[in-house]
């Protein structure tokens, strides 16, 4: 049975209303999306309408990191509330602070149990991004940058693409060694089940990133940094293809003239077998376009059929697992994610 109302304050009424004895019901209290939507419209009206909301520019990032900027912004055509430790400071505009603060608190209160993140309403959606989010994981400036970039990138990218893009963006300006160490710290973080790091990513994908970065020349790195979003998107696609269809992955790599060290069969046979494999695929590429409907079938026949394909797939899985755990022996007793 639920508690009796203890006092007549609104907060105690809210607490009493939501109180449920365990096992008494399966009903889940939730806020009305219609009401939250209407209240959001009021907030937008207060700040002068959606068209008067400033765009969040890349030059604003350092202000957010320094705790100097908060408020309501448009980022990648989405509505974003940027907070500092969950609240708004003077930069949000003195007359609007209470309204913005009020709305984010309403939204936050058990609304999908998430903060920051995406809040989906009926006709609207909005995001909450916090400049100081998860300070306990922010061991250095580069970690704080990652936490902020990843919140911003998740607004318009998939989870893995956002993670990779944010890692590289945060590491911009670091030496190769420092970047590798930073990514390795993230791998450890992902493998450690004890920490409550809020962002998730397959550590095998992160390990693949260190492998790729280690063989990239300066020119390729500069190209990647010109458009990190595209690089991250291609990188994630490439990793998926490597595991799902290694020969096709390799055909694309060979056709692009990329480093053979990235091929799926590296470490599977000797140098002669590797050359034969590359030559066979190259001959097929000379005879047929990669997007020809019969290319995939011919490719599988070229490499030796289903038996070889299964062997390569097994090798890829073993490689990404071994690569990951070789470097991180202290975590090797934990299950792979």
């Amino acid at each position: 049975m639920s508690k009796k109302i203890s006092t007549y304050s609104i907060s105690s009424i809210l607490s009493d209303f939501l109180h449920q004895d365990s096992n008494s019901s399966t009903y889940q209290f939730k806020k009305s999306p219609e009401v939250m939507n209407e209240l959001l419209e009021s907030v937008l009206e207060r700040v002068g309408g959606k068209s008067s909301i400033p765009t969040f520019g890349s030059d604003s990032v350092s202000l957010v990191l320094n705790g100097e900027l908060s408020g309501i912004f448009i980022h990648k055509e989405k509505l974003v509330f940027i907070t500092q430790n969950g609240t708004f400071n003077k930069s949000a505009g003195a007359s609007n602070i209470s309204a913005l603060d009020s709305y984010v608190k309403m939204a936050e209160h058990r609304f999908n149990g998430q903060y920051p993140g995406k809040y989906q309403l009926l006709s609207n959606e909005f995001y909450v991004v916090d400049g100081q989010y998860h300070l306990q994981t922010s061991k250095s400036e580069v970690w704080r940058k990652f936490n902020l970039f990843n919140q911003l990138n998740q607004i318009h990218m998939g989870n893995d693409e956002s993670y990779i893009c944010s890692l590289l963006k945060a590491a911009e300006g670091l030496s190769d060694k420092e970047t590798e160490a930073f990514i390795s710290e993230h791998i450890k973080q992902q493998l450690s089940f004890e920490t409550k790091f809020p962002f998730r990513c397959d550590p095998k994908l992160l390990k693949r990133l260190t492998t790729c970065l280690s063989i990239m020349n300066m020119e390729d790195k500069q190209c990647a940094y010109i458009d990190l979003h595209s690089y991250a998107t291609e990188f994630v696609k490439d990793f998926i293809l490597l595991r799902e269809n290694p020969p096709l992955h390799d055909a694309i790599q060979i056709e692009s003239g990329n480093n053979p060290k990235l091929l799926s069969v590296i470490g599977l046979g000797n140098a002669t077998q590797l050359n034969e494999y590359i030559t066979a695929i190259q001959n097929l590429l000379d005879a047929k376009l990669i997007n020809d409907p019969s290319f995939a079938t011919d490719l599988h026949l070229t490499i030796g059929g289903k038996g070889t394909l299964d062997r390569i797939k097994e090798h890829v899985e073993k490689s990404v697992h071994v690569e990951l755990h070789d470097d991180l022996n202290e975590y090797s007793n934990q299950p792979s994610m």
Binding site: I10, S11, F17, K31, S98, S102
Partner: peptide
């Protein structure tokens, strides 16, 4: 208007109650 904490709590409460 300053939006008070009480109004914020009321909005949250009413949103749950309407649902």
């Amino acid at each position: 208007n300053h939006v008070s904490e009480e109004v914020t709590n009321l909005a949250t409460t009413v949103s749950y109650q309407i649902q």
